[in-house]
């Protein structure tokens, strides 16, 4: 399945957000996720299915003002 993660194209075998994070190496617990512009809570990643063409955002703490 082809999805976009943080603006980069990826081909993944994962079927859920949680599996995609693991497959793509986002192993840190310090990330937040949104799928197609909608927030996906940490405890919902395992039952949030991916579809062809989905856009996944994986955000982390960064410096800010």
């Amino acid at each position: 399945m082809n999805i976009t993660v943080n603006a980069k194209a990826h081909e993944v075998s994962a079927r859920t957000v949680e599996d995609a994070l693991r497959e793509l190496g986002f192993t840190s617990p310090s990330v937040a996720t949104a799928l197609n512009g909608k927030f996906v809570a940490r405890n919902r990643r395992g039952d949030t299915d991916l579809r062809e063409g989905d856009q996944l955002e994986v955000l982390a703490p960064m410096q800010g003002g």
Partner: peptide, 13 residues
């Protein structure tokens, strides 16, 4: 602090 795109190497962590 802010939130920005994470890299696979865990910069944000």
């Amino acid at each position: 602090v802010s939130l920005r795109r994470e890299t696979a190497d865990g910069t944000g962590a």
